[in-house]
Design a protein around this nucleic acid. Sequence first.
DNA 1: ACTTGAAAGTGACGTAACGTAATCTTGTAT
DNA 2: ATACAAGATTACGTTACGTCACTTTCAAGT
Lengths: 249, 249
Amino acid sequence: MISIKEVTKQTGISVRTLRYYDEINLLPPAGKTEGGHRLYGEKELKKLQEIQFLKTLGFNLKEISDMLSDEDWDWAQGLESQLNYIMKEKEKILEIESTLKGLKNGLTIDGKIDLVYLNKLIQLYKQDTEKRKLYREQYFHAQESELLDLLPNMNRNDPDTLEWIALIGQLKQHRDKGSDAPEIQRIIRRIHEKTIETFGDNENFFDKVWEVRKSPEKSQKVGFYPIEQDLIDFFERAWDIFMENYEEE
Amino acid sequence: MISIKEVTKQTGISVRTLRYYDEINLLPPAGKTEGGHRLYGEKELKKLQEIQFLKTLGFNLKEISDMLSDEDWDWAQGLESQLNYIMKEKEKILEIESTLKGLKNGLTIDGKIDLVYLNKLIQLYKQDTEKRKLYREQYFHAQESELLDLLPNMNRNDPDTLEWIALIGQLKQHRDKGSDAPEIQRIIRRIHEKTIETFGDNENFFDKVWEVRKSPEKSQKVGFYPIEQDLIDFFERAWDIFMENYEEE
DNA sequence: ACTTGAAAGTGACGTAACGTAATCTTGTAT
DNA sequence: ATACAAGATTACGTTACGTCACTTTCAAGT
């Protein structure tokens, strides 16, 4: 029989917790002193460890109580349903993660956030996975469709995507300097390089992407992140200027 | 100006929720009727949508309140820290998932669960990833080490692992029938087939695995799931019988 | 035996975001 | 004018404890 203090020392579990477990009858102490101080034995220590372990599995105290008190508890069933629950939680978390990343990327590009608009966009995105796929396949071949995923994807967070997004963001930032300004042309050069790195010299594909990109409706249907029309126009002008100089060399 | 009922119709949000948002001053109604009934306008509807959206991102109402009331809210920072938080939650969930799967598999093999023992095992497993790797490399070559992961791994849930586990479980179930019983020999035959499917005819490797498997200490160091000694012995006898008949053919 | 400080006891309130009564008042359609 | 739906207020329940506030018990030293 050891004191409550000893238990907390050995297990790291707080006094309050032990009192609470006593209160809800999950783990009553083995006995009490005359003065009413709780005393615990080996059996209780073991049960305490079991409780802690089951807690790490995400069970709540009620469930744990049932499991440990019911001699005929159906572990297979219990674990299965807990796993189901956890898988659903995982799905939720993964969705949140991808939405957050999308938001971050959108913020980098736009500098501000229209929450309601983005919400709609995301709802749309979730619902229409199938439709979007069909629409994509109309415009692009199977191989090309894979290439599409290399474009800024909003929901990814890898260095590659980040650079695309950073480039578009920079473009926007310096837009007021005019499409032939050296800063702009430097950015365009990098975009050009990156395009070649990413897509090789698949010119045809690049043109197709550009055609879709230029139409907001088509962009939405394929699932591109929306970029303001005037930024797209601005980019096109800057791009043309760059290509003229580029071809002269 | 629309009534509270209209709002719930349009948004699906409960009356209680709206009252609560009013109470904590997150979303006060645009006005009230003489009798004190709440009235909402377009602005409030939009804000409500924003709140709902931010809630799906895992923010709590206090945070949302701050974000929406502070004109200079640092979205980049806020999203970043929320993403951090979510990533930690994801880690937790993933750990729970893998532990639950391990438990399920252990249950299939043993038919019962010693929670404290398993807890220790899992703690050990988490701590000693590095040590285990080193130990593995002493016994097995690099390529072989990859093959090891094809063995029943406790924390995986793919059909392949499940079949290994089912086979071991069946073996245990019918152990009382003796190592030469037809049921046992059928199971062994399947194990033999599966071994060849998995490892090809890398006999040398299989012998090494077997050597480690036969020693509980070595098994633990390499990270194999613990199987009772007498089950291993039983399997060895059954295996020998099978191989004799097999080689005669 | 007496004192004293640490350890333990028992309430009771707070947390997050509402759900769920219970009871009373207001709005509105007939 | 009346009836019935919709709304208001108040308050308790939920989870797993943390954190006071105040009182009592324990163990050690004198």
